[in-house]
């Protein structure tokens, strides 16, 4: 009895393994070895910054589709782009390095608290409760939902606000979707000016709650010689392409003319210390205030 069962299972296993072994030869599908090579060149953080489902999705797409450029990996930067370009035989235009810009300067504007929040330390939860913890409905809540999702440890909470380390930020955009208020915005590292306010309100509605918030006077829209600034979705939006291609000859008229001082210089990227947490452009008005 024991031998019969052992033998019959052995026979079954043998037959099944032979069939599978034969089948794996007969039905062998040649997979492109370049996909694996590209996978190895990519950082493997699966951040999704390229717009594909993880590094494997991008590796498959970049190898098989000639229309997909080799510089989509923002986390890897130029080195990875060049490696992927070599593996796939594509020419590489260097990816514009981006970083997540925090469009809020609530400490400069002394935004008051609406109530004393003692719930879950999460922006998503606080944003649901009567329009958030602060009187401004568009401010940085500072519970760090973005810090938690950042795959590169480039974000920190200081003084109730998130601070982005531009040297560590790769511009993958994971934090952008984590922020319940859409405060973070991907901006080119080279961008010369930026609006440090996210509010969609206007005039008194803004000036009543925040000392520096954008009141939509649209002075910057009118002064910009490159026509790079516009009012979209009730927010001042700067087209970085138009702004950068016009060049510095406008001497940042928009930032100089901003009556609220919220459209500021953003192009002083610290180069030496790798762990500097805040850009100088943001620090200056903070020390004054």
């Amino acid at each position: 009895m024991v031998f019969v069962s052992i033998l019959s299972l052995f026979a079954l296993g043998l037959v099944a393994s032979i069939i599978l072994a034969v089948a794996s030869h007969v039905f062998y599908v040649k997979e492109d070895p370049r996909v694996e090579a590209v996978m190895e060149a990519l950082p493997g953080a699966n951040c999704g910054g390229c717009g594909f489902a993880g590094c494997e999705g991008y590796a498959n797409a970049v190898v098989n589709d000639p229309a997909i450029p080799a510089n989509k990996c923002c986390a890897g930067g130029a080195d990875v782009s060049i490696a992927v370009g070599e593996l796939t035989g594509k020419t590489v235009a260097e990816a514009e390095p981006l970083y997540a810009l925090r469009r809020c300067a609530k400490r400069d504007g002394n935004v008051a608290l609406r109530y004393n929040y003692q719930g879950m330390p999460s922006c998503a939860a606080a944003a649901l409760l009567r329009g958030g913890t602060e009187v401004c409905a568009h401010s940085c809540l500072g519970f760090g939902d973005c810090v938690q999702v950042c795959p590169f440890g480039a974000m920190e909470i200081h003084d109730g606000m998130v601070h982005v380390n531009r040297n560590k930020c790769t511009g993958c955009g994971t934090c952008v979707s984590a922020c319940p208020r859409g405060i973070l915005e991907l901006t080119p590292q080279r961008a010369r000016v930026a609006v440090y306010c996210n509010t969609r309100d206007k005039l008194r509605a803004v000036s009543d709650v925040c000392g520096v918030g954008c009141i939509k006077c649209t002075k910057c829209v009118k002064t910009c010689p490159a026509k790079a600034i516009s009012l979209k979705d009730n927010r001042i939006t700067i087209d970085p392409g138009l702004c950068l291609s016009f060049g510095p000859s406008c001497e940042e008229a928009c930032a100089k003319g901003c009556p609220r001082g919220i459209l500021r210089y953003a192009n002083v990227r610290p180069t030496a210390p790798a762990d500097a947490t805040v850009t100088t452009a943001e620090q200056q008005p903070q020390t004054q205030a």
Partner: peptide, 21 residues
């Protein structure tokens, strides 16, 4: 136990077959 072996082998086989065909 025999059904387990048969089904497992079958699914593996089907997977290879589908990938090719």
């Amino acid at each position: 136990i025999i059904f387990i072996v048969v089904i497992a082998a079958l699914v593996q086989f089907v997977e290879m077959f589908l990938k090719k065909a």
